[in-house]
Amino acid sequence: MKPAFFCAATAALLLSGAAASARPYAPAAGNDDTILVKLPNQVSMTIVARDKKQLRELKEYKLDSLMIMLSGYISQAEAAGSKSSNGQVTMEFYPAKDKPSSQAAPEQVRVTVRGGQTKTDRVEVMMGKMGIKVESDQEIDTGKEHVSIKWNNDDDDDTKRDSLKQVRRQVKRDKLTGSDFGVDLGLNALVNRKPYLDPTSGQEQAFDLRPFGSRYISLNWNFWARAGKNSPLYFHLGPEVAFNNYMLEGNRRFVQTDQRTNIAAGGDVQYEKSKLATTNLNLPVGFTLKFRNEKHDEIMRIGAGGFVGYRIGAHTKVKYEQDGRTHKDKDRGSYNLEDFQYGVQGTLGIRGFDLFAKYNMNDLFKENRGPKAQVVSFGITFSDI
């Protein structure tokens, strides 16, 4: 609480306390008795009474109690002033009505608070990397004006970066078309599997993939178009290069013959790794709904669509120990894989975090020329959205 506000209100309190009659005091009379008290910080307190008798009656008032009461009134006035446009407010209180049992309670207290806010005018001019900032602050009470001129410097780098980031976000938010680059990192799994016929034993055998060894990676170039300026619906398409690893569970490997691809047991050789790797060029297409908050910041995304793709490469790789040496055998070939793939996909994103899932609707291998199974890929997307 500022001393000037407190002392000014004190004067008003003592003035009302000195009045003996119920009618408000009219300062027009010229023969009133007056006491002028000068306080620090160029603050003065004036006590006006009709006669000396009223001045002597001031001793009946307990100034400490009055000060406590006055402090509460000033706090209320300051709170009300902070909500006004210019910070100024006048409030009247009637302690005698609030406490009729008190003989010394003032009849009326008027508190006027003039806000101490400053009026600020700011101008910023930017020319390339150079800039000038002019700030003008004017105090309402004293009329004093403070002007500062500052050249743009490194101290404002953080502010500039935040401002530029906001501008980029606003520009991208209002764009109707654009493009993004993303990377999918995930895992592969085989579904709808059927047992294969073991060429050695002639019996049907089940097969599966190692969960964390069968990795999926794709590089995505995504071009999108918005349905309208304020529409949450986006249409997107774009090429992607996908790398799939299918690592077999157990001591087995993929073996290619002229007619089909089989899964064969390693026998005396123990495979540390045994996988089939493919490279596909895909074209995803779909729609995305983007939900925003009241500040128009994107908070969630839901996408769905499909894809078609073409296999551009495949090879197998096995790693094993034999005769005290580590062997890595890598063989390229078609392995009777389907050349074309097609399927559906979906995405779910919250702010900068996205999940994806892809389901290949056709089999991994050509019909009757390899194990029967379909591929599901799932994981996390990292992108510049």
Rank of each mutant, 00 (worst) to 15 (best):
G30N: 14
A227L: 13
V308L: 10
L190F: 13
V308E: 00
V48N: 01
F356R: 05
K330W: 09
Q322T: 02
P40V: 07
D184Y: 11
T159W: 15
Q259Y: 03
A225W: 09
A79E: 13
V308K: 06
G346R: 10
P371M: 00
R23Q: 04
F181A: 05
P106R: 10
E78I: 12
N293C: 04
L36R: 03
N244A: 02
A11F: 00
N41W: 08
E135T: 15
V48F: 10
G116V: 14
E135Y: 12
Y271F: 15
L63Q: 01
A9T: 11
S85L: 07
R56L: 15
D158E: 15
T46F: 00
T257N: 09
D180S: 10
N282T: 04
Q170A: 03
D51C: 12
N192M: 02
N251C: 05
M1D: 14
E92M: 00
Q166K: 11
S231V: 01
P195V: 04
D384C: 08
I380W: 14
T347R: 02
G286C: 05
A79R: 10
E240W: 06
R252P: 03
L187K: 06
S214P: 15
G178V: 03
K97C: 05
L36M: 10
Q76T: 03
S44V: 14
T142F: 08
F6M: 00
D323V: 08
K119M: 13
Q108S: 15
A242G: 08
V269F: 00
I299F: 03
V111T: 10
V111P: 05
S218H: 02
M91P: 06
F93M: 04
E60I: 11
G17F: 08
M247C: 14
N222M: 12
L289F: 13
S377K: 10
S21T: 00
G186P: 10
A19T: 11
L237A: 08
E294F: 02
F356G: 03
Q103G: 03
R23H: 00
V123E: 15
S148M: 03
V89E: 08
F6E: 03
G115V: 06
L58E: 05
L13G: 07
K59C: 07
H327A: 04
S65H: 00
E139M: 11
E298S: 07
A264N: 01
V376S: 07
Y216N: 14
I350W: 01
L39D: 12
R215Q: 13
K119P: 00
V147P: 09
V37L: 13
F5V: 12
P40I: 09
K83T: 09
V123P: 03
T257D: 00
V318P: 04
Y359D: 03
P3G: 08
N262D: 15
T34Y: 04
S218D: 11
A9D: 13
L337C: 05
N293H: 11
Q205I: 08
I385K: 07
F254Q: 10
S231T: 00
D64E: 06
I302D: 07
N368H: 02
R173E: 11
A225H: 02
G238W: 09
T142M: 09
K133N: 14
G87E: 11
G202W: 08
K358C: 07
V171F: 12
L190H: 05
F93E: 04
F382L: 15
D339T: 07
A277S: 02
M1W: 05
A26R: 09
K175T: 13
A79I: 12
S218G: 06
A9S: 13
L190Q: 09
L190N: 01
G30L: 15
D155Q: 14
T10F: 12
